[in-house]
């Protein structure tokens, strides 16, 4: 019934519109005017609208920047992230400046050069000098940005892995994450998807001597200011491990091992102080992976060495978990 009513209303609205438009066109026919000819008055109105709506849009942009600033991610909680934030500030600053030069020019030109029947446009087909100028300036600016960007990228991706770098495996599947700590030897035992069975959800090869002391966990604890190398695997489809607060992201691809190394530099406790009691570091999935993609998460906790030692000691190693507790 509602559907029929809505259908009838739509038909009536369309019929009314037809009549209104028709009346408008007939009226101007009587006045001997071409209704669709653009008049000087139209040019004035539309030019003015460009000025008002165009600048309204720019004000809307500024309003958003002010009002929603507090919703954006807090400054990076990792060493390489700080440099990324700096690059972001520089790039953002630059595009904001260019945006606030070119957009007003566009809207202002539309207003300023709105047409008049009696006016004539200025014939100008090209100007080589001008064109060279506005090719060279962007080229210089972009060269600087590219060099700065590549340095930051190199700094983020090519981390030096030393003896003290903690190895942690992050394992993705629909729709959860599991972590595996490398244990006292700081070496991850081999793993193979064919060995996934029962409690051995990561397919760890228990015949490998490095596996025995590995530890599985459903949350990740990191020591502040200690470098860590995350190794990613996926069991089924592509996932993406996204740790926005650390400026860390890497896809987890079935059949391929990927990694991301970084050094967290703010503890969860410190972040709770500045960002509020509810703050937690969190790992999200950022590559479409199925129905519960929107709810695939794992908690990350950054803490002091002492707190970490207590936590890690309380976790069973794989030997105990898989081999003894049958």
């Amino acid at each position: 019934m509602t559907n029929i009513l809505i259908f009838i209303i739509v038909i009536l609205v369309i019929a009314t519109l037809v009549q209104i438009v028709r009346v408008g066109e007939l009226l101007s026919e009587i006045k001997n005017k071409d209704v669709n000819e653009v008049s000087d008055k139209d040019n004035n109105t539309q030019g003015l609208l460009f000025l008002i709506v165009g600048f309204g849009f720019l004000i809307f942009v500024v309003w958003q920047m002010i009002t929603w600033n507090h919703l954006l991610l807090p400054p990076a909680s990792s060493v390489h992230g700080t440099q990324i934030d700096l690059l972001m500030k520089v790039s953002m600053g630059l595009i904001i400046v260019v945006f606030f030069i070119t957009s007003p020019m566009l809207f202002y030109f539309a207003f300023k050069y709105r047409g008049k029947k009696s006016n004539n446009a200025y014939f100008l087909s090209h100007n080589n000098k001008l064109e060279v100028v506005w090719t060279v300036i962007p080229t210089i600016i972009l060269t600087v940005l590219i060099i700065f960007g590549l340095k930051t990228w190199d700094n983020a991706m090519n981390v030096e892995v030393t003896e003290s770098t903690k190895l942690i495996e992050v394992y993705a599947k629909q729709y959860n994450w599991t972590a595996r700590y490398s244990g006292i030897d700081n070496k991850l035992g081999k793993a193979n998807y064919k060995l996934v069975k029962g409690k051995n959800t990561l397919g760890v090869d228990m015949l490998d001597v490095n596996s025995a002391d590995d530890k599985m966990a459903r949350e990740v604890h990191l020591v502040v200011n200690e470098p860590v190398l995350l190794k990613f695997r996926s069991q089924d489809v592509i996932h993406s491990a996204f740790l926005p607060h650390f400026r860390v992201q890497m896809n987890c691809v079935p059949g391929i091992s990927t990694q991301f190394g970084f050094t967290p530099n703010k503890t969860t406790a410190q972040m709770k102080e500045s960002e509020g009691e509810d703050f937690e570091y969190v790992l999200l999935c950022n590559k479409i992976c199925g129905a519960s993609h929107f709810n695939m998460q794992m908690k990350f906790i950054v803490e002091t060495q002492e707190e970490y030692d207590i936590w890690i000691a309380s976790q069973d190693n794989l030997e105990k978990k898989l081999l003894t507790q049958k």
Partner: peptide, 29 residues
Amino acid sequence: TFTTLLIAIPSAVKVFNYLATLWRGNIRF
């Protein structure tokens, strides 16, 4: 990254050329 950011150059040229076309025109809306 290098090749991608290069695209900004011809794009910028296009924008400036559109602006220059509007400049001192007799715009009919």
